[in-house]
Design a protein around this nucleic acid. Sequence first.
DNA 1: ATGATTCATTGATTTACATCAACTTTATGT
DNA 2: ACATAAAGTTGATGTAAATCAATGAATCAT
Lengths: 252, 252
Amino acid sequence: MGTADNFINLNSASLKTACESCSLHQLCLPLELAHDDIAELDKIIKRTKPLHRGDYLFEMGDPFTSLYAIRSGSIKTFTSTDEGEEQVTGFHLPSEIVGLDAIISSHHPCSARALETTSVCEIPFERLEALGQKIPGLQRQLLRIMSKEILTDQDMMVWLGKKSAEERLAALLLRISSRFRDRNFSAMEFNLSMSRTDIANYLGLAVETISRLFSRFQQEGLLRVDRKYVEITDYEGLRQMAGIAPDCHHHQ
Amino acid sequence: MGTADNFINLNSASLKTACESCSLHQLCLPLELAHDDIAELDKIIKRTKPLHRGDYLFEMGDPFTSLYAIRSGSIKTFTSTDEGEEQVTGFHLPSEIVGLDAIISSHHPCSARALETTSVCEIPFERLEALGQKIPGLQRQLLRIMSKEILTDQDMMVWLGKKSAEERLAALLLRISSRFRDRNFSAMEFNLSMSRTDIANYLGLAVETISRLFSRFQQEGLLRVDRKYVEITDYEGLRQMAGIAPDCHHHQ
DNA sequence: ATGATTCATTGATTTACATCAACTTTATGT
DNA sequence: ACATAAAGTTGATGTAAATCAATGAATCAT
Protein backbone atom coordinates (compact mmCIF):
# COMPACT_ATOMS: atom_id res chain seq x y z
CA MET A 1 0.00 0.00 0.00
CA GLY A 2 2.13 2.85 -1.27
CA THR A 3 5.50 2.04 0.17
CA ALA A 4 8.53 4.21 -0.35
CA ASP A 5 8.85 3.25 -3.97
CA ASN A 6 11.02 6.12 -5.06
CA PHE A 7 13.78 5.60 -2.62
CA ILE A 8 15.93 3.76 -5.07
CA ASN A 9 15.84 6.59 -7.55
CA LEU A 10 17.51 8.91 -5.13
CA ASN A 11 21.14 8.41 -5.80
CA SER A 12 20.68 7.41 -9.38
CA ALA A 13 18.83 10.64 -10.02
CA SER A 14 19.49 10.54 -13.70
CA LEU A 15 16.71 11.65 -15.98
CA LYS A 16 14.14 12.92 -13.57
CA THR A 17 14.43 14.48 -10.17
CA ALA A 18 13.02 12.52 -7.28
CA CYS A 19 10.20 15.02 -6.79
CA GLU A 20 9.22 14.76 -10.39
CA SER A 21 9.00 11.00 -10.33
CA CYS A 22 7.16 10.90 -7.02
CA SER A 23 3.64 9.59 -7.24
CA LEU A 24 2.43 12.50 -5.12
CA HIS A 25 3.92 14.98 -7.51
CA GLN A 26 0.65 16.47 -8.63
CA LEU A 27 -0.73 16.87 -5.17
CA CYS A 28 2.23 18.10 -3.24
CA LEU A 29 3.77 20.40 -5.80
CA PRO A 30 2.42 23.55 -7.34
CA LEU A 31 1.20 22.55 -10.73
CA GLU A 32 2.47 25.68 -12.37
CA LEU A 33 6.06 24.99 -11.45
CA ALA A 34 8.49 24.66 -14.34
CA HIS A 35 10.88 21.75 -14.68
CA ASP A 36 13.86 23.78 -13.53
CA ASP A 37 12.01 25.06 -10.50
CA ILE A 38 11.09 21.57 -9.45
CA ALA A 39 14.71 20.59 -9.77
CA GLU A 40 15.67 23.43 -7.44
CA LEU A 41 13.02 22.50 -4.95
CA ASP A 42 14.18 18.94 -5.18
CA LYS A 43 17.68 19.95 -4.18
CA ILE A 44 16.69 21.31 -0.81
CA ILE A 45 14.51 18.36 0.17
CA LYS A 46 16.08 15.78 2.42
CA ARG A 47 14.81 12.25 2.30
CA THR A 48 15.22 10.53 5.60
CA LYS A 49 14.84 6.87 6.37
CA PRO A 50 11.30 5.68 7.07
CA LEU A 51 9.75 5.97 10.48
CA HIS A 52 8.31 2.97 12.23
CA ARG A 53 5.03 2.79 14.05
CA GLY A 54 5.20 4.96 17.14
CA ASP A 55 8.35 6.83 16.10
CA TYR A 56 8.30 10.54 16.64
CA LEU A 57 8.74 12.80 13.64
CA PHE A 58 9.14 15.63 16.10
CA GLU A 59 8.12 16.30 19.66
CA MET A 60 6.23 19.21 21.12
CA GLY A 61 8.75 21.89 22.04
CA ASP A 62 11.36 20.77 19.53
CA PRO A 63 12.93 23.63 17.61
CA PHE A 64 11.25 24.13 14.29
CA THR A 65 13.53 23.74 11.31
CA SER A 66 11.59 21.85 8.67
CA LEU A 67 8.20 21.10 7.27
CA TYR A 68 7.48 17.48 6.41
CA ALA A 69 5.59 16.15 3.42
CA ILE A 70 4.26 12.65 3.91
CA ARG A 71 5.15 10.28 1.09
CA SER A 72 3.59 7.11 2.41
CA GLY A 73 2.09 5.93 5.67
CA SER A 74 0.38 8.25 8.12
CA ILE A 75 1.09 10.57 11.00
CA LYS A 76 -0.93 11.77 13.94
CA THR A 77 -0.29 15.13 15.49
CA PHE A 78 -1.25 15.85 19.07
CA THR A 79 -0.68 18.21 21.94
CA SER A 80 -0.22 17.25 25.54
CA THR A 81 -2.18 19.20 28.09
CA ASP A 82 -0.74 20.24 31.42
CA GLU A 83 -2.30 17.22 33.05
CA GLY A 84 -0.46 14.95 30.65
CA GLU A 85 -3.46 13.76 28.66
CA GLU A 86 -3.06 14.09 24.94
CA GLN A 87 -5.36 15.68 22.40
CA VAL A 88 -5.10 14.49 18.83
CA THR A 89 -5.21 17.49 16.50
CA GLY A 90 -5.00 15.69 13.19
CA PHE A 91 -4.36 12.62 11.09
CA HIS A 92 -2.13 13.18 8.10
CA LEU A 93 -2.02 11.09 4.95
CA PRO A 94 0.36 11.01 1.99
CA SER A 95 0.95 14.34 0.22
CA GLU A 96 -0.10 16.31 3.24
CA ILE A 97 2.28 18.63 5.02
CA VAL A 98 2.86 18.74 8.75
CA GLY A 99 4.61 21.38 10.80
CA LEU A 100 2.80 24.45 9.49
CA ASP A 101 1.65 25.43 12.95
CA ALA A 102 5.24 25.85 14.08
CA ILE A 103 6.18 28.67 11.72
CA ILE A 104 4.95 31.32 14.10
CA SER A 105 6.87 30.32 17.19
CA SER A 106 10.01 28.59 15.95
CA HIS A 107 9.25 25.53 18.01
CA HIS A 108 6.68 22.80 17.48
CA PRO A 109 3.43 23.33 19.39
CA CYS A 110 2.49 19.68 18.93
CA SER A 111 4.09 16.29 18.58
CA ALA A 112 3.93 14.07 15.51
CA ARG A 113 4.13 10.26 15.59
CA ALA A 114 3.97 7.68 12.85
CA LEU A 115 0.83 5.56 12.96
CA GLU A 116 2.46 2.96 10.73
CA THR A 117 5.65 2.67 8.71
CA THR A 118 5.89 6.10 7.18
CA SER A 119 8.29 7.92 4.92
CA VAL A 120 8.47 11.67 4.71
CA CYS A 121 10.29 14.38 2.81
CA GLU A 122 11.98 16.86 5.07
CA ILE A 123 11.84 20.41 3.76
CA PRO A 124 14.13 22.84 5.58
CA PHE A 125 11.98 25.89 6.07
CA GLU A 126 14.66 28.54 5.80
CA ARG A 127 15.67 27.26 2.44
CA LEU A 128 12.09 26.86 1.32
CA GLU A 129 11.40 30.44 2.27
CA ALA A 130 14.46 31.63 0.37
CA LEU A 131 13.44 29.60 -2.64
CA GLY A 132 9.93 30.99 -2.44
CA GLN A 133 11.45 34.38 -2.81
CA LYS A 134 12.80 33.36 -6.19
CA ILE A 135 9.87 31.31 -7.41
CA PRO A 136 6.54 33.12 -7.15
CA GLY A 137 4.55 29.95 -7.85
CA LEU A 138 6.09 28.22 -4.90
CA GLN A 139 5.30 31.06 -2.57
CA ARG A 140 1.72 31.03 -3.72
CA GLN A 141 1.47 27.30 -3.24
CA LEU A 142 2.76 27.62 0.30
CA LEU A 143 0.12 30.21 1.13
CA ARG A 144 -2.56 28.06 -0.43
CA ILE A 145 -1.54 25.03 1.58
CA MET A 146 -1.70 27.05 4.78
CA SER A 147 -5.03 28.50 3.82
CA LYS A 148 -6.35 25.01 3.27
CA GLU A 149 -5.12 23.96 6.66
CA ILE A 150 -6.97 26.86 8.26
CA LEU A 151 -10.10 25.90 6.40
CA THR A 152 -9.85 22.27 7.48
CA ASP A 153 -9.38 23.24 11.09
CA GLN A 154 -12.35 25.60 11.01
CA ASP A 155 -14.40 22.84 9.50
CA MET A 156 -13.36 20.63 12.33
CA MET A 157 -14.40 23.26 14.83
CA VAL A 158 -17.87 23.21 13.36
CA TRP A 159 -18.07 19.45 13.71
CA LEU A 160 -16.80 19.40 17.25
CA GLY A 161 -19.08 22.21 18.31
CA LYS A 162 -22.29 21.25 16.66
CA LYS A 163 -22.49 17.63 15.62
CA SER A 164 -23.59 14.48 17.38
CA ALA A 165 -21.31 11.51 17.92
CA GLU A 166 -22.66 9.60 14.93
CA GLU A 167 -22.36 12.62 12.68
CA ARG A 168 -18.76 13.14 13.72
CA LEU A 169 -17.67 9.58 13.07
CA ALA A 170 -19.54 9.34 9.80
CA ALA A 171 -17.99 12.61 8.65
CA LEU A 172 -14.51 11.49 9.62
CA LEU A 173 -14.87 8.27 7.67
CA LEU A 174 -16.11 10.18 4.65
CA ARG A 175 -13.26 12.61 4.87
CA ILE A 176 -10.70 9.82 5.06
CA SER A 177 -12.40 8.06 2.19
CA SER A 178 -12.30 11.23 0.16
CA ARG A 179 -8.62 11.75 0.85
CA PHE A 180 -7.84 8.20 -0.23
CA ARG A 181 -9.79 8.77 -3.41
CA ASP A 182 -7.73 11.88 -4.13
CA ARG A 183 -4.60 9.76 -3.88
CA ASN A 184 -6.02 7.11 -6.19
CA PHE A 185 -6.50 4.58 -3.46
CA SER A 186 -9.84 2.93 -3.00
CA ALA A 187 -12.37 5.27 -1.45
CA MET A 188 -14.71 2.45 -0.51
CA GLU A 189 -12.38 0.22 1.47
CA PHE A 190 -9.28 1.06 3.43
CA ASN A 191 -7.38 0.41 6.60
CA LEU A 192 -7.59 2.90 9.40
CA SER A 193 -4.07 3.30 10.66
CA MET A 194 -5.16 4.94 13.87
CA SER A 195 -6.55 3.25 16.97
CA ARG A 196 -10.11 3.64 18.23
CA THR A 197 -8.66 5.58 21.12
CA ASP A 198 -7.06 8.06 18.72
CA ILE A 199 -10.28 8.42 16.78
CA ALA A 200 -12.24 8.99 19.97
CA ASN A 201 -9.70 11.50 21.17
CA TYR A 202 -9.71 13.35 17.88
CA LEU A 203 -13.50 13.52 17.74
CA GLY A 204 -13.86 14.50 21.37
CA LEU A 205 -15.71 11.31 22.30
CA ALA A 206 -15.15 8.27 24.51
CA VAL A 207 -13.61 5.10 23.08
CA GLU A 208 -16.69 3.17 24.07
CA THR A 209 -18.84 5.50 22.01
CA ILE A 210 -16.69 4.92 18.93
CA SER A 211 -16.87 1.21 19.44
CA ARG A 212 -20.63 1.26 19.77
CA LEU A 213 -20.95 3.43 16.70
CA PHE A 214 -18.85 1.10 14.56
CA SER A 215 -21.10 -1.72 15.67
CA ARG A 216 -24.24 0.25 14.94
CA PHE A 217 -23.04 1.46 11.55
CA GLN A 218 -22.31 -2.14 10.68
CA GLN A 219 -25.70 -3.34 11.91
CA GLU A 220 -27.39 -0.67 9.86
CA GLY A 221 -25.51 -1.83 6.79
CA LEU A 222 -23.45 1.30 6.29
CA LEU A 223 -20.10 -0.36 6.89
CA ARG A 224 -18.35 -3.66 7.07
CA VAL A 225 -15.76 -3.43 9.79
CA ASP A 226 -13.06 -5.88 10.66
CA ARG A 227 -10.63 -4.50 13.13
CA LYS A 228 -8.80 -1.70 11.30
CA TYR A 229 -10.27 -2.58 7.94
CA VAL A 230 -13.32 -0.60 6.90
CA GLU A 231 -15.50 -1.09 3.86
CA ILE A 232 -18.17 1.47 3.09
CA THR A 233 -21.17 -0.52 1.94
CA ASP A 234 -23.68 2.32 1.80
CA TYR A 235 -21.97 5.54 0.84
CA GLU A 236 -25.16 7.57 0.56
CA GLY A 237 -26.39 6.25 3.87
CA LEU A 238 -23.15 7.26 5.48
CA ARG A 239 -23.47 10.72 4.03
CA GLN A 240 -26.93 11.02 5.48
CA MET A 241 -25.59 9.84 8.82
CA ALA A 242 -22.99 12.58 8.62
CA GLY A 243 -25.82 15.08 8.46
CA ILE A 244 -26.27 15.37 4.71
CA ALA A 245 -23.84 16.48 2.07
CA PRO A 246 -20.76 17.81 3.79
CA ASP A 247 -19.32 17.66 0.27
CA CYS A 248 -15.94 16.43 1.25
CA HIS A 249 -14.50 16.83 -2.22
CA HIS A 250 -13.74 20.50 -1.85
CA HIS A 251 -11.76 20.73 1.32
CA GLN A 252 -9.89 17.52 1.88
CA MET B 1 -13.03 52.75 23.02
CA GLY B 2 -10.63 52.85 20.12
CA THR B 3 -12.54 54.64 17.41
CA ALA B 4 -11.18 55.29 13.95
CA ASP B 5 -8.79 57.91 15.17
CA ASN B 6 -6.44 57.85 12.22
CA PHE B 7 -8.96 58.51 9.57
CA ILE B 8 -8.23 62.17 9.47
CA ASN B 9 -4.60 61.59 8.67
CA LEU B 10 -5.47 59.79 5.50
CA ASN B 11 -5.59 62.52 2.95
CA SER B 12 -3.15 64.74 4.70
CA ALA B 13 -0.56 62.00 4.60
CA SER B 14 2.27 64.36 5.04
CA LEU B 15 5.09 63.27 7.28
CA LYS B 16 4.14 59.72 8.10
CA THR B 17 2.21 57.12 6.18
CA ALA B 18 -1.12 56.10 7.58
CA CYS B 19 0.17 52.65 8.46
CA GLU B 20 3.07 54.09 10.33
CA SER B 21 0.92 56.32 12.46
CA CYS B 22 -1.68 53.66 13.12
CA SER B 23 -1.92 52.60 16.74
CA LEU B 24 -1.88 48.96 15.66
CA HIS B 25 1.36 49.43 13.81
CA GLN B 26 3.42 47.13 15.95
CA LEU B 27 0.92 44.33 15.95
CA CYS B 28 -0.23 44.30 12.39
CA LEU B 29 3.04 44.99 10.62
CA PRO B 30 6.24 43.02 10.54
CA LEU B 31 8.55 44.71 12.94
CA GLU B 32 11.55 44.27 10.70
CA LEU B 33 10.07 46.31 7.90
CA ALA B 34 11.98 49.39 6.87
CA HIS B 35 10.36 52.79 6.50
CA ASP B 36 10.31 52.59 2.73
CA ASP B 37 8.76 49.15 2.80
CA ILE B 38 6.00 50.33 5.06
CA ALA B 39 5.37 53.17 2.68
CA GLU B 40 5.00 50.70 -0.18
CA LEU B 41 2.68 48.49 1.80
CA ASP B 42 0.76 51.57 2.74
CA LYS B 43 0.17 52.38 -0.88
CA ILE B 44 -1.71 49.20 -1.67
CA ILE B 45 -3.98 49.37 1.36
CA LYS B 46 -7.42 50.78 0.80
CA ARG B 47 -9.23 52.37 3.67
CA THR B 48 -12.94 52.03 3.37
CA LYS B 49 -15.62 53.74 5.33
CA PRO B 50 -16.56 52.14 8.65
CA LEU B 51 -19.05 49.30 8.85
CA HIS B 52 -22.04 49.50 11.12
CA ARG B 53 -23.35 46.80 13.39
CA GLY B 54 -24.64 43.94 11.30
CA ASP B 55 -22.99 45.07 8.06
CA TYR B 56 -21.30 42.38 6.06
CA LEU B 57 -17.60 42.74 5.34
CA PHE B 58 -18.03 39.88 2.91
CA GLU B 59 -20.45 37.04 2.43
CA MET B 60 -19.80 33.33 2.09
CA GLY B 61 -19.25 32.60 -1.57
CA ASP B 62 -18.09 36.10 -2.46
CA PRO B 63 -15.02 36.15 -4.69
CA PHE B 64 -11.88 36.58 -2.69
CA THR B 65 -9.88 39.65 -3.55
CA SER B 66 -8.63 41.11 -0.31
CA LEU B 67 -7.61 40.41 3.22
CA TYR B 68 -8.91 42.75 5.88
CA ALA B 69 -7.07 44.06 8.91
CA ILE B 70 -9.33 45.29 11.65
CA ARG B 71 -8.48 48.76 12.89
CA SER B 72 -11.23 49.24 15.44
CA GLY B 73 -14.41 47.47 16.40
CA SER B 74 -14.93 43.74 15.96
CA ILE B 75 -16.03 41.17 13.42
CA LYS B 76 -17.55 37.74 13.68
CA THR B 77 -16.93 35.15 11.00
CA PHE B 78 -19.34 32.29 10.47
CA THR B 79 -20.39 29.64 8.02
CA SER B 80 -23.93 28.67 7.18
CA THR B 81 -24.69 24.98 7.12
CA ASP B 82 -26.93 23.40 4.51
CA GLU B 83 -29.83 23.61 6.91
CA GLY B 84 -29.36 27.34 7.21
CA GLU B 85 -28.14 27.43 10.79
CA GLU B 86 -24.96 29.36 11.29
CA GLN B 87 -21.76 28.34 13.01
CA VAL B 88 -19.58 31.10 14.36
CA THR B 89 -15.94 30.32 13.55
CA GLY B 90 -14.30 33.29 15.17
CA PHE B 91 -14.42 36.70 16.80
CA HIS B 92 -11.87 39.15 15.50
CA LEU B 93 -10.50 42.16 17.31
CA PRO B 94 -8.36 45.10 16.20
CA SER B 95 -5.05 44.24 14.47
CA GLU B 96 -6.31 40.81 13.52
CA ILE B 97 -6.64 39.76 9.92
CA VAL B 98 -9.68 38.09 8.39
CA GLY B 99 -10.00 36.34 5.06
CA LEU B 100 -7.01 34.03 5.30
CA ASP B 101 -9.16 30.96 4.83
CA ALA B 102 -10.17 32.17 1.37
CA ILE B 103 -6.72 32.12 -0.19
CA ILE B 104 -7.02 28.50 -1.18
CA SER B 105 -10.28 28.63 -3.06
CA SER B 106 -10.57 32.17 -4.40
CA HIS B 107 -13.93 32.64 -2.77
CA HIS B 108 -14.82 33.19 0.86
CA PRO B 109 -15.77 30.02 2.74
CA CYS B 110 -17.38 32.05 5.49
CA SER B 111 -19.19 35.32 6.01
CA ALA B 112 -17.96 38.22 8.10
CA ARG B 113 -20.21 40.73 9.86
CA ALA B 114 -19.46 43.69 12.05
CA LEU B 115 -20.47 43.20 15.67
CA GLU B 116 -20.29 46.95 16.27
CA THR B 117 -19.09 50.00 14.36
CA THR B 118 -15.91 48.73 12.82
CA SER B 119 -13.26 50.09 10.53
CA VAL B 120 -10.95 47.91 8.51
CA CYS B 121 -8.02 48.19 6.14
CA GLU B 122 -8.59 46.39 2.89
CA ILE B 123 -5.48 44.71 1.54
CA PRO B 124 -5.79 43.52 -2.08
CA PHE B 125 -4.25 40.08 -1.99
CA GLU B 126 -2.78 40.05 -5.48
CA ARG B 127 -0.85 43.17 -4.77
CA LEU B 128 0.17 41.98 -1.33
CA GLU B 129 1.51 38.79 -2.84
CA ALA B 130 3.43 40.73 -5.46
CA LEU B 131 4.84 43.01 -2.81
CA GLY B 132 5.80 40.01 -0.69
CA GLN B 133 7.89 38.89 -3.59
CA LYS B 134 9.92 42.05 -3.28
CA ILE B 135 10.05 42.33 0.49
CA PRO B 136 11.18 39.13 2.22
CA GLY B 137 10.14 40.38 5.64
CA LEU B 138 6.58 40.86 4.48
CA GLN B 139 6.37 37.37 3.09
CA ARG B 140 7.63 35.95 6.33
CA GLN B 141 5.16 37.98 8.31
CA LEU B 142 2.32 36.69 6.18
CA LEU B 143 3.34 33.09 6.79
CA ARG B 144 3.66 33.76 10.48
CA ILE B 145 0.20 35.26 10.67
CA MET B 146 -1.25 32.23 8.94
CA SER B 147 0.67 29.88 11.15
CA LYS B 148 -0.73 31.67 14.16
CA GLU B 149 -4.23 31.28 12.80
CA ILE B 150 -3.71 27.54 12.40
CA LEU B 151 -2.45 27.34 15.93
CA THR B 152 -5.42 29.24 17.30
CA ASP B 153 -7.86 27.03 15.47
CA GLN B 154 -6.17 23.88 16.68
CA ASP B 155 -6.31 25.24 20.18
CA MET B 156 -10.00 25.80 19.71
CA MET B 157 -10.44 22.23 18.54
CA VAL B 158 -8.94 21.02 21.78
CA TRP B 159 -11.34 23.15 23.78
CA LEU B 160 -14.38 22.08 21.84
CA GLY B 161 -13.43 18.43 21.97
CA LYS B 162 -12.32 18.06 25.54
CA LYS B 163 -13.53 20.79 27.80
CA SER B 164 -16.66 21.30 29.85
CA ALA B 165 -19.03 24.21 29.37
CA GLU B 166 -17.56 26.19 32.24
CA GLU B 167 -14.01 25.61 31.05
CA ARG B 168 -14.89 26.80 27.57
CA LEU B 169 -16.52 30.03 28.67
CA ALA B 170 -13.81 30.80 31.20
CA ALA B 171 -11.16 30.19 28.56
CA LEU B 172 -12.93 32.39 26.04
CA LEU B 173 -13.15 35.25 28.51
CA LEU B 174 -9.48 34.88 29.34
CA ARG B 175 -8.52 34.86 25.71
CA ILE B 176 -10.52 37.99 25.01
CA SER B 177 -9.04 39.63 28.07
CA SER B 178 -5.58 38.70 26.90
CA ARG B 179 -6.18 40.11 23.46
CA PHE B 180 -7.42 43.38 24.91
CA ARG B 181 -4.31 43.55 27.07
CA ASP B 182 -2.12 43.10 24.00
CA ARG B 183 -3.82 46.11 22.45
CA ASN B 184 -3.35 48.18 25.59
CA PHE B 185 -6.98 48.13 26.54
CA SER B 186 -8.01 47.05 29.99
CA ALA B 187 -7.70 43.31 30.43
CA MET B 188 -9.85 43.29 33.55
CA GLU B 189 -12.96 45.01 32.25
CA PHE B 190 -14.36 45.22 28.78
CA ASN B 191 -17.50 45.09 26.72
CA LEU B 192 -18.34 41.94 24.85
CA SER B 193 -19.47 43.06 21.44
CA MET B 194 -21.05 39.71 20.62
CA SER B 195 -24.40 38.41 21.80
CA ARG B 196 -24.86 35.47 24.16
CA THR B 197 -26.22 33.57 21.21
CA ASP B 198 -23.00 34.14 19.28
CA ILE B 199 -20.91 33.08 22.25
CA ALA B 200 -22.98 29.94 22.70
CA ASN B 201 -22.75 29.17 19.02
CA TYR B 202 -19.00 29.69 18.97
CA LEU B 203 -18.44 27.49 22.00
CA GLY B 204 -20.79 24.77 20.82
CA LEU B 205 -23.20 25.28 23.71
CA ALA B 206 -26.79 26.39 24.21
CA VAL B 207 -27.60 30.02 24.98
CA GLU B 208 -29.22 28.99 28.21
CA THR B 209 -26.00 27.34 29.32
CA ILE B 210 -24.04 30.54 28.70
CA SER B 211 -26.59 32.53 30.61
CA ARG B 212 -26.45 30.17 33.57
CA LEU B 213 -22.66 30.19 33.53
CA PHE B 214 -22.48 33.98 33.58
CA SER B 215 -24.79 33.93 36.58
CA ARG B 216 -22.76 31.26 38.33
CA PHE B 217 -19.43 32.93 37.63
CA GLN B 218 -20.87 36.10 39.11
CA GLN B 219 -22.23 34.31 42.17
CA GLU B 220 -18.87 32.68 42.73
CA GLY B 221 -17.22 36.09 42.61
CA LEU B 222 -15.21 35.53 39.44
CA LEU B 223 -16.96 38.20 37.42
CA ARG B 224 -19.16 41.19 37.63
CA VAL B 225 -21.49 41.12 34.66
CA ASP B 226 -23.86 43.78 33.48
CA ARG B 227 -25.32 42.99 30.12
CA LYS B 228 -22.39 43.20 27.67
CA TYR B 229 -20.04 44.65 30.23
CA VAL B 230 -17.75 42.19 31.99
CA GLU B 231 -15.36 42.83 34.83
CA ILE B 232 -13.01 40.08 35.91
CA THR B 233 -12.93 40.24 39.70
CA ASP B 234 -10.95 37.06 40.33
CA TYR B 235 -8.48 36.47 37.53
CA GLU B 236 -6.80 33.51 39.18
CA GLY B 237 -10.14 31.92 39.96
CA LEU B 238 -11.17 32.30 36.35
CA ARG B 239 -7.96 30.65 35.25
CA GLN B 240 -8.66 27.74 37.52
CA MET B 241 -12.18 27.54 36.15
CA ALA B 242 -10.69 27.37 32.66
CA GLY B 243 -8.84 24.26 33.74
CA ILE B 244 -5.58 25.72 35.00
CA ALA B 245 -3.04 27.80 33.20
CA PRO B 246 -3.93 27.89 29.52
CA ASP B 247 -1.28 30.63 29.45
CA CYS B 248 -3.10 32.84 27.04
CA HIS B 249 -0.15 35.11 26.49
CA HIS B 250 1.54 32.90 23.95
CA HIS B 251 -1.14 32.21 21.41
CA GLN B 252 -3.68 34.99 21.41
C1' DA C 1 -43.86 57.27 24.05
C1' DT C 2 -45.72 52.57 23.02
C1' DG C 3 -46.23 48.27 21.26
C1' DA C 4 -43.46 44.73 18.87
C1' DT C 5 -39.49 42.07 18.38
C1' DT C 6 -35.34 40.39 19.71
C1' DC C 7 -32.30 38.98 23.44
C1' DA C 8 -31.44 37.19 28.14
C1' DT C 9 -32.44 34.80 32.31
C1' DT C 10 -34.26 31.07 35.27
C1' DG C 11 -36.58 26.63 36.23
C1' DA C 12 -38.22 21.75 34.99
C1' DT C 13 -37.45 17.83 32.23
C1' DT C 14 -35.08 14.94 28.94
C1' DT C 15 -31.23 12.83 26.63
C1' DA C 16 -26.87 11.88 24.53
C1' DC C 17 -22.88 10.60 25.88
C1' DA C 18 -19.41 9.69 29.67
C1' DT C 19 -18.13 6.78 33.14
C1' DC C 20 -17.70 2.47 35.47
C1' DA C 21 -17.23 -2.37 35.16
C1' DA C 22 -16.67 -6.95 33.21
C1' DC C 23 -15.15 -9.46 29.54
C1' DT C 24 -12.99 -10.74 24.86
C1' DT C 25 -9.82 -10.25 21.33
C1' DT C 26 -5.59 -8.86 19.45
C1' DA C 27 -0.76 -7.48 19.97
C1' DT C 28 3.91 -7.87 22.10
C1' DG C 29 7.91 -9.69 23.85
C1' DT C 30 10.80 -13.42 25.79
C1' DA D 1 4.44 -20.81 22.04
C1' DC D 2 3.20 -18.71 25.95
C1' DA D 3 2.32 -15.18 29.31
C1' DT D 4 1.30 -10.48 29.82
C1' DA D 5 -0.18 -6.36 28.30
C1' DA D 6 -2.84 -3.42 25.35
C1' DA D 7 -6.86 -2.53 22.63
C1' DG D 8 -11.58 -3.27 21.65
C1' DT D 9 -16.36 -4.53 22.67
C1' DT D 10 -20.77 -4.60 25.31
C1' DG D 11 -23.87 -3.59 29.17
C1' DA D 12 -25.49 -0.83 33.34
C1' DT D 13 -25.61 3.55 35.47
C1' DG D 14 -24.78 8.52 36.11
C1' DT D 15 -24.54 13.27 34.69
C1' DA D 16 -23.64 17.50 32.09
C1' DA D 17 -25.77 20.01 29.08
C1' DA D 18 -29.72 20.27 25.64
C1' DT D 19 -34.35 21.13 25.16
C1' DC D 20 -38.75 22.86 26.48
C1' DA D 21 -41.25 26.49 28.61
C1' DA D 22 -42.27 30.75 30.77
C1' DT D 23 -41.01 35.32 31.99
C1' DG D 24 -38.36 39.61 32.07
C1' DA D 25 -35.33 43.19 30.08
C1' DA D 26 -33.59 45.76 26.24
C1' DT D 27 -33.77 47.41 21.58
C1' DC D 28 -36.27 48.72 17.45
C1' DA D 29 -39.82 50.77 14.65
C1' DT D 30 -43.80 53.59 14.06
